[in-house]
């Protein structure tokens, strides 16, 4: 249950930030997952983004969307994380495993169909991906998505429609992957 927080026209206080974060955490998690394209890093990135945002409360415009504002931090952290990951990959390709890589968990094994869907999802643009996840996973309506992401409702609808179509197209071939799990 979200805790009440003071609504004021001024900048966020840390307590108000924490309350709004709690209230929006599921949406923000989906935004993070949409930006990074997978769920494994979403929580870590969201935490880091929240910590960063907490030091920049003065940049929040009370007239704008909290989720949209937080998304900027999520995007920044996610991009940094991706760069770090790319550098690690480069080092690993050279056969030199950095010590910080020791002991990391094995990659998650996905159902083949799910893995295919994830790959297709990653071909979408960031906003389209986020819109699709908010619509599909959190079952938000277009007005809510628009409000959260600070975009027009028509744009949200268009993103979702095109994302669905593109996903279907990508998953048409090879045909067998379109068999949902458990289908005979």
């Amino acid at each position: 249950m979200p805790e009440p927080y003071p609504i004021s026209a001024g900048p966020l206080t840390p307590a108000a930030f924490a309350a709004r974060f709690r209230e929006s955490s599921r949406v923000l998690w989906c935004v993070a997952a949409g930006i990074v394209g997978n769920r494994s890093q979403a929580e870590d990135i969201l935490q880091e983004a929240a910590m960063r945002a907490l030091t920049k409360l003065g940049t929040f415009d009370p007239e704008s969307s909290f989720v949209a504002w937080m998304s900027q931090f999520v995007r920044y952290i996610a991009l940094n994380d991706r760069r770090k990951h790319d550098r690690r990959e480069q080092v690993l390709r050279q056969g030199i495993a950095p010590q910080s890589e020791r002991g990391t968990q094995a990659p998650l094994r996905l159902d083949p169909f799910d893995a295919h869907v994830t790959r297709a999802l990653q071909t979408l643009g960031e906003t389209a991906r986020t819109c699709l996840l908010l619509k599909t996973v959190l079952e938000m309506d277009y007005a809510e998505i628009a409000e959260q992401l600070d975009i027009p409702a028509g744009t949200a609808m268009s993103h979702v429609s095109r994302a669905r179509s593109k996903m279907r197209g990508l998953l048409e071939e090879p045909a067998p992957v379109l068999q949902p799990r458990g289908a005979s």
Binding site: R26, D111, V117, A120, T136, V137, L138, L178, Q179, P180
Partner: peptide
């Protein structure tokens, strides 16, 4: 196909307990 995709998305991207 759409139903299968959406089911897969929900399986993979339902937010954990936050």
């Amino acid at each position: 196909a759409q139903a299968a995709i959406e089911a897969a998305l929900r399986r993979q991207f339902s937010p954990p307990d936050l």
